[in-house]
């Protein structure tokens, strides 16, 4: 009789398919995680359609789509990672999913490959949809150099990793499956307001900017602005530059803290 367990990576990859299938069949997740940032892009762009910012020396005028594109991409990273995993895993802790899995020979590593895989696939598709809509429906400007797109890629995926890990961490907060939405959504909404997604970050009071800088979302948004805004805009940022090195460090610290926290706290089931 075969006794060799299926490989951790192989099971993990099958988990990605299983998680994606579950995700697209969950209307709440598809609407509030997948389509929400796209919808907000459409609403903001339409609402401020008269907006035109002339940037001396940039050689182009910023429209509302240009202004909101990086913010909505950052929102996508936050909702696809933190919000999606925070709610999803809180529910799985309380509805018996983790208990059922813990009774099977699956490795927690496979489980997490499935979770991260689902986030990475859905967030990538979401970002593509946002960028294409901004470009082809609203005529937003897209960067033309490989270098800027590479910056986008590392900010996006590093940010997504931090955002996902933050989601795993906050999934510990809700005390029941029913309260998952109510507990997870408000902090995420507040984080969006103070991190420059709905409101322009530079118009916030300085103490609030400093507070928001503790969290990764502000840095992700800043990284995206560096990609999509004319370089002249950096003078408006806190400190007058994009500080991409700080963006990388801040997000990486979140990833590291999150990994340690998850390794220390994650249990399939609390044994009593």
């Amino acid at each position: 009789m075969k006794t060799e367990l299926p490989s951790i990576l192989g099971v993990g990859i099958r988990r990605i398919g299983y998680e994606l299938k579950s995700y697209i069949r969950t209307p709440d997740a598809v609407f509030f995680n997948f389509f929400f940032p796209l919808m907000m892009l459409v609403i903001f762009t339409a609402a401020f359609s008269n907006l035109e910012i002339d940037v001396p020396g940039a050689g182009r005028v910023l429209t509302s789509a240009d202004v909101y594109l990086p913010a909505m991409l950052a929102m996508g990273v936050l909702v696809s990672g933190t919000q999606n995993l925070g709610i999803d895993m809180a529910i799985e802790k309380h509805d018996g999913t983790l208990r059922r899995l813990s009774g099977s020979p699956i490795s927690p590593v496979s489980y997490f490959i499935g979770k991260f895989g689902q986030v990475f696939v859905s967030a990538t598709l979401q970002a593509v949809a946002i960028v294409l809509t901004a470009r082809f429906v609203f005529g937003a400007y897209l960067p033309e150099t490989i270098e800027l797109w590479l910056t986008f890629a590392w900010v996006f995926y590093l940010g997504l990793l931090a955002s996902s890990i933050l989601g795993i961490a906050i999934s510990a907060l809700p005390r029941s499956a029913k309260s998952a939405n109510a507990v997870i959504l408000p902090p995420i909404l507040i984080l969006q307001f103070i991190s420059g997604i709905y409101l322009s970050f530079t118009t916030l009071p300085e103490w609030l900017q400093n507070f928001a800088s503790v969290f990764p979302v502000k840095w992700i948004g800043q990284g995206f602005r560096a990609v999509f805004y004319p370089d002249q805009f950096k003078s408006v940022e806190l400190g007058g530059d994009w500080f991409l090195d700080q963006v990388a460090i801040a997000i990486a610290i979140w990833v590291a803290l999150g990994v340690v926290f998850t390794l220390l706290t994650f249990r399939w089931v609390k044994k009593s």
């Binding site: 579950s22 069949r25 208990r99 059922r100």
Partner: peptide, 14 residues
Amino acid sequence: QQSAGDLGRLSVRD
């Protein structure tokens, strides 16, 4: 396990 509502969106076979 006691059904706890953790399964549902996918088919029995899947």
